[in-house]
Simulated scan of single mutants.
Amino acid sequence: MTELIVDIHKAYWISDNDRLYWAALAKRKKHIRQLTHYLAKQQKLILPTPVLVVAEIGFRTGGRADPGNASLAVKAALDGLTDAGAWPDDDSRHVIGPDYRRGPKAPVKDRYRIHLKFIDQRVPF
């Protein structure tokens, strides 16, 4: 299983519950996409396809949270992986999921954490 951790400053975090102006939303998506692209290139990440993606979301606080609301941020991160060449595309032929889970509290107070886990789904026969 391959993993990638993306820590996102609270100023760039995107939630499905946010009501952002389109330009502010685009700026945040671009930041997450470029950050993930950089991290994937740094790790020379190449993923087998098809692959199951599990996204563990580490929130800033330990209170109640809905991990599914991080879908915009996770989608931007998956697009960054496509830009980095980690897989051919993030369509349904190559990527299963993502499956959203609550992760442990983010280690830095002003950041959110997306912990992506990639589980190979190739059948060996």
Rank of each mutant, 00 (worst) to 15 (best):
P50M: 01
V53A: 11
A55K: 10
K105T: 08
R28L: 12
R28K: 15
V74Q: 00
K27V: 07
P50F: 00
V74D: 00
M1F: 06
W87N: 05
R64V: 13
L81T: 06
V95L: 15
E3W: 07
K109P: 01
D89F: 11
A70I: 04
I14W: 01
K29C: 14
G97S: 12
R101T: 06
P88S: 11
L45V: 09
P48R: 04
D120A: 12
F125D: 04
P50Y: 00
I14V: 12
D66I: 03
F59P: 01
L35V: 09
L35N: 03
R113T: 15
L39C: 05
Y112I: 08
R113P: 03
V123A: 04
L81K: 01
T82N: 05
V6T: 07
D79C: 12
W87C: 14
Q34I: 06
E56F: 05
G97Q: 09
Q43I: 08
L35P: 05
Q43R: 15
A70E: 03
A84M: 04
H9S: 14
K105L: 01
R111E: 14
R60W: 00
K109S: 06
Q42N: 09
P124H: 08
Y38N: 02
P124A: 12
Q42G: 02
V51L: 03
D120C: 11
L20F: 02
V53E: 07
A24L: 09
V53M: 09
T36F: 07
D7K: 13
K105Q: 09
P104Q: 05
L72R: 00
H94V: 14
Q43A: 13
K105M: 05
D7H: 13
I8Y: 06
R93T: 01
K117R: 13
Q34W: 00
A84E: 04
Q121N: 11
K27L: 09
R122K: 10
L45K: 08
A76C: 01
R64G: 14
D83Q: 12
A65G: 05
I114S: 02
D66M: 01
L116S: 04
D99W: 03
P48M: 07
G62T: 11
A106V: 08
K27G: 03
G85Y: 04
P98L: 09
R93Q: 05
I32W: 05
I14T: 06
P48E: 06
V6D: 04
Q42Y: 06
K27A: 13
G62W: 01
Y112T: 04
I32L: 09
K75F: 00
A84R: 03
H37K: 15
A24Y: 02
L72H: 00
D83L: 14
T82E: 13
F125T: 04
L116T: 04
Y12Q: 15
T2S: 13
I8V: 15
F125I: 05
D99T: 10
I57T: 03
Y112H: 13
A84P: 06
L45D: 08
L39K: 12
I5P: 03
A40R: 02
R113S: 08
A70Q: 04
D90R: 14
I96F: 06
A55P: 10
